[in-house]
Design a protein around this nucleic acid. Sequence first.
DNA 1: CGGTGCTTTGGT
DNA 2: ACCAAAGCACCG
Length: 359
Amino acid sequence: MAQPVVSVFLRGFLSGGLVSSALFGIYSYNNNANLAIESGIHVEYQESLTDPSYKLRGDQILKYGVPDRGPDVRYYRNHALTYDQSRKSPIWVAEHLNKEVLTGSANRKHSKFKPDVNIPEMYNAANSDFYKSGWSRGHMAPAGDNKFDQVAMDESFYLSNIVPQDLNNNGQFWNKLEMYTRDLVQTKGYSDVWVVTGPIVRSTIEENGKKFVKYEVIGKNEVPVPTHLYKIILAETGDKQTKLIGAFVVPNQPIQHDHTLRQYQVTLEDLQIWTGINFFPKLDKSTTKNLCDVDQCKLLSREQFELYFIGRKLDSARNISRLEKVWSELDEKNLKPDQFLIELYNRKKSEIDLKEKEE
DNA sequence: CGGTGCTTTGGT
DNA sequence: ACCAAAGCACCG
């Protein structure tokens, strides 16, 4: 947790107008933070670093240690990350989930994707980089992990927390993985879950048998498109007796519902080799068990997944035609509504009938 | 839940 | 007259 101290130190230096050539190996005298950044000294004011509530939350997020790669750790209301300035992408993003942060009324409809105000303009990605690129804007720390606070949810929409992600992957398989992670807290009795998520580029073999690292870049800022995304889940029971850990590497492409999460499980050691990151340096790995051996790592089935969203869409329907259209999806997709869904449909129908009669 | 995209609004 | 933001409909 040395970073805040370093930041305060450098901030004092910069405001004093002197950047020491002895310390930084450059021969410049300036009081301009941007010039310092261009010189390779990356530091700028971050309100979150001086706000005790953020610091407190950050200590929880990083309870098992700061992943030991990345020059600085940035703390947000409910996530922490290191950022790759040259690639305009996160390196890793960490969160701590419990019932508190998963409960509340924050709504993603009130949030907007936008450049991170805590990152210098020249190192920031932009919405225009993603527009018509063929790639969607995929959260690393999910918006849905921030129901407790609208500001926290808004911060998850900073582009420092976003990478280019296949739209189908983002909305389906990756979405189910995020739901699974929350479910460990919400229904499976794990009081605390620590998650580290990030982009990764894996090599591919070409015709001549040689291996290359190759990835698309999008937009004016050339934001890299990762070939895969990784996620590490550490689940702990309230009595601290059980610690489960699972690491997953998922291809950044459409993945059908018949694929299991276990197919994409890797060892923590392999992921450490591929990323160069030691993820939970303070965690005694000998006390952990394989998450998928204990829990089975079962994602929602296609049927469960689609019924869930039909329910949400019925709930948000505002007129009869929309309600009936959503209801007809059940037949189209060969789905059988459960009692909950039938009651929801009937309740919405009478609500809308009543409202339309008044007009 | 995860997203995109078209239309309307509003500021210069 | 223009462009960016906001609002709303829609998709899996």
